[in-house]
């Protein structure tokens, strides 16, 4: 299997870069394959942008948005989109991603990643919004599958089929968050293997791995733990069926020392290498 060259992120393990590690990363320049940051934290100028531009001199950067609300039915926030566009122009990221979720209704914004029923109505709506974003940015958007705490009885298709159809209609890519799928499998009984087989392998451009917490029997996507053995196993299954892709360790709360993150990224790296070795 040849290493994919169509995507600018290196097909290695990377880490989510968060504020507690900015200084250490810039001072020591540790060996990181690539880094991903939350786009909104770098809207505007000053210290955040300047830090990211320095990081960009040393590592490929992926911009991961948490606030676009691709599935919201309120109008797309043009100011938000322009801010993202300016950030892209400044950083020239290797990838840009958003979530398959909504965040705004009834005059309010819920700063979270909210689920919706996978209907034909939602499909055309989200496809239109993705096209708007891709047109503004002039490039492909990666769309991440959602971790959800409930599902809807009137969904007309699975999330996997929904994502597959979105890639067909818009040319968007998929950011496959393996931990989100695991959360959905445990919480909602989603068939993880069927999901992995349903999404088009060539559209998957990136993996996410993270840890979760449990509240009252519900797995919550808190990104505050190491990747659990079951998620590693699901990742290995995905590597076999989809193939190796750039893989990110996400850790957003109770952020551990940098070596812990690098250790997790190395575990992903090891699995990527095995995947290459077995395929070649």
């Amino acid at each position: 299997m040849a290493r994919p060259v169509t995507h600018a992120l290196p097909c290695t393990g990377g880490i989510g870069l968060r504020a507690p590690h900015y200084r250490q990363v810039l001072d020591r320049l540790p060996r990181l394959g690539w880094v991903e940051v939350h786009s909104e934290n770098f809207f505007g100028g000053g210290a955040p942008l300047s830090t990211l531009l320095r990081v960009r001199e040393h590592y490929p950067v992926s911009l991961h948005g948490v606030g676009m609300g691709l599935a919201s039915t309120t109008p797309l926030d043009k100011a938000h989109l322009s801010a993202l566009h300016r950030l892209c122009d400044a950083v020239k990221p290797a990838a840009i991603s958003e979530h398959l979720s909504w965040n705004s209704a009834a005059g309010m914004v819920i700063n979270d990643l909210l689920p919706f029923p996978y209907t034909q109505e939602a499909l055309s709506h989200v496809a239109t919004r993705i096209e708007q974003v891709q047109e503004e940015l002039g490039r492909q958007l990666l769309v991440e599958n959602l971790s959800s705490y409930l599902s809807f009885a009137h969904s007309e298709m699975t999330e996997g089929a929904f994502l597959a159809e979105l890639t067909q209609r818009t040319g968007c890519g998929i950011l496959f968050d393996v931990e989100n799928l695991y959360v959905n499998a445990c919480n909602l009984g989603v068939d993880a293997k069927a999901f992995i087989k349903a999404i088009p392998a060539e559209a998957v451009k990136e993996y996410h791995l993270a840890g979760y917490s449990v509240r009252d029997g519900c797995l919550v996507d808190t990104h505050d733990h190491p990747v659990c053995p079951e998620v590693w196993e699901m990742y290995e299954f995905a590597l076999q069926h989809i193939g190796p892709r750039p893989t990110l360790i996400e850790w957003d709360s109770d952020i551990p020392p940098l070596p812990v993150l690098m250790g997790e990224a190395a575990k992903a790296q090891q699995r990527l290498e095995i995947c290459y070795a077995c395929a070649e």
Binding site: I110, N111, D112, L114, P117, Y149, L150, S151, F152, A153, H154, C186, N187, L188, G189, R215, D216, G217, C218, V220
Partner: peptide
């Protein structure tokens, strides 16, 4: 009418997670 489904716990548990996330983030 929302037709929300949670096979493993009550829908109220899921809504509590969303409510707490909302408040906690803010």
């Amino acid at each position: 009418q929302a037709h929300a489904v949670c096979p493993k716990y009550r829908v109220a548990t899921a809504m509590a997670v969303y409510h707490n996330n909302y408040r906690g983030n803010l």
